[in-house]
């Protein structure tokens, strides 16, 4: 297949699931406005960060008046998972130019990674792998930006009685529940959630909750194996 065909193959293969990021993008846009950001700040955050869960966490902490370094650290811990995807996909992207490496890294997401690696494992002999990945990752960026803009608009328009802030926990439920596969992931979610709840009066609740949840999941996995 040509590079163009691989690109469109990737593009088409994610179309059924790219629609799933729409509610998440909407909610992220709403959460930025609810946190007190201006339209310009919210719009720029959307393309500069381009990582929903961390944006939502940062917005919530910012709204609580948390210190800047805590907002940044919390978001960065949430986004540390991209290193894992970056490592796994790196052998397939090593022959592209520097500029393209940076572009392809910038649009790396959980979903694009998952789809692409599954395709590479299924068809290891195919050429033009970077093009497939580019085709699979681009739709998420486009749809994310559009739904984010709509969310920013809705956040300013819809009345407060609608309680759109509740859409944040709901959107995470929508991602988490279908992703539960094994005992360690359930344990990570429970410990992370409970720790953060107990620490809710403090501003380190998400950060400490995430750390203990990750540790609990990791230990549960090690125990299962041994």
């Amino acid at each position: 297949m040509s590079s163009r065909q691989e690109f469109w193959l990737g593009f088409r293969s994610v179309l059924p699931i790219v629609i799933g990021v729409v509610p998440f993008g909407l909610v992220t846009g709403v959460s930025a406005i609810n946190a007190g950001m201006s339209t310009g700040e919210a719009l720029n955050m959307s393309w500069i960060v381009f990582a929903g869960a961390s944006q939502i966490a940062a917005n919530a902490l910012w709204a609580q008046g948390a210190p800047a370094f805590l907002v940044v650290i919390t978001a960065v811990v949430i986004n540390a998972r991209f290193m894992m995807y970056s490592a796994a996909i790196s052998p397939y992207l090593k022959h592209v130019s520097w500029l393209r490496k940076m572009l392809l890294a910038y649009i790396l997401t959980d979903q694009a990674f998952g789809i692409t690696i599954a395709h590479f494992n299924q068809y290891p002999e195919r050429q033009h792998k970077p093009w497939y990945y580019f085709g699979a990752a681009l739709p998420f960026w486009i749809v994310w930006q559009i739904s984010g803009v709509i969310g920013i608009f809705l956040g300013q328009t819809l009345p407060a009685e609608w309680q759109l802030d509740f859409a944040v926990p709901l959107s995470f439920i929508a991602i988490l529940i279908p992703a539960i596969k094994d005992r360690p992931s359930v344990i990570a979610a429970i410990i992370g959630g409970l720790t953060a709840t107990l620490l809710a009066p403090t501003r380190v609740s998400v950060l400490v909750g995430a750390f203990l949840g990750i540790a609990a999941g990791y230990m549960a996995e090690s125990k299962t194996k041994s």
């Binding site: 869960a53 939502i56 966490a57 919530a60 811990v77 949430i78 540390a80 998972r81 290193m83 894992m84 490592a87 959980d110 802030d165 944040v168 926990p169 995470f172 439920i173 991602i175 988490l176 992703a179 539960i180 360690p184 992931s185 990570a188 979610a189 429970i190 410990i191 992370g192 959630g193 409970l194 720790t195 953060a196 709840t197 809710a200 009066p201 609740s205 998400v206 909750g209 995430a210 750390f211 203990l212 949840g213 990750i214 540790a215 609990a216 999941g217 990791y218 996995e221 090690s222």
Partner: peptide, 24 residues
Amino acid sequence: SVRHALKYVPMAAMSAIALPPLLY
């Protein structure tokens, strides 16, 4: 070991964001 730990970031972090506003 780092790879295995990072696998649990989405689960732990999203739950840590989603649960507190339901009970506090």
